[in-house]
Design a protein around this nucleic acid. Structure first.
Lengths: 136, 136
DNA sequence: CTTAGTGCAAACTGTTTGCAGAGGG
DNA sequence: CCCTCTGCAAACAGTTTGCACTAAG
């Protein structure tokens, strides 16, 4: 199983990295399609799967119905906009008092954890403020 | 919009509570069907939606393709078995050093966060150990 | 050349919805 | 009696897969 670097794969990777965002398969498909109109959505799905299995990108385990993919494979956490559903990176002092040392809870062997913040992103905050003004 | 307590709704709620687990719609459907063979999956979905909107149960925002529902509505976190995908409650000192006080990050207004532990549940640990013995 | 990767369409999984009829309050 | 809820089937969204063809190495 040698990994080939096809034009499609290269373009998908390039677009994901260039976006600096956490795109879904179909968002990425829309972007790649601009320069490769004949690419199929299935190819995007297959490549995202292959690339994340190879550790070149990361698959996000996160709220929402659609999977998202991350150009950044270094461990970090995410923040999720309740209004527009975009996902951004967040870095903070990743310390949970007490738990990281407790190696098992309820008989579980803990292998890791994710923290997912939820909130309102800057651009949605602006929109909400504008609405408030109009309403008053 | 008055909430009626139908037989179906009552049974769904009873089964979810009795399970002491975090079931998916179709797991719950399978259980309820035993005593109500004519119930439809759509009814289960609709009731889980209604009950969680009413705050009687909680809808989990968690990894995995299927939604899960929680009989326990008090805020707490979850641990997820990598092997069998079951979800259990976990309680710990919910303090993230520094972050809870920082009211915005990257311009986001943070409204909350969830912590999701991942690991191997007790019964899968046993199975894995058994496999190891057999392999050796 | 060999075999991983592609495009297409069709299948599949989980969830939602329109509708006519049932039954809770 | 009203109007929420039900069962059914059909629609839907996101993702995966079988197949014959293409192209990377």
């Amino acid at each position: 199983m040698v990994l080939r670097m096809t034009n499609q794969r290269e373009m998908i990777l390039k677009e994901l990295r260039a976006s600096r965002q956490h795109l879904t398969a179909d968002e990425l498909y829309a972007r790649v399609k601009k320069s490769m109109p004949r690419i199929s959505l299935a190819t995007v799905y297959r490549n995202l799967e292959t690339l994340s299995a190879a550790g070149i990108i990361a698959k996000l385990e996160i709220s929402g119905r659609q999977k998202r993919f991350d150009y950044n494979i270094v461990e970090h956490d995410h923040i999720y906009c309740l209004r527009c559903h975009r996902v951004d990176n967040i870095t903070f002092d990743r310390e949970l008092s007490g738990v990281s040392t407790k190696e098992s809870a309820g008989g579980y062997k803990i292998t890791g954890y994710r923290v997912e913040f939820v909130g309102i992103c800057p651009s949605c905050r602006k929109k909400l403020e504008k609405n408030k003004e109009n309403a008053s």
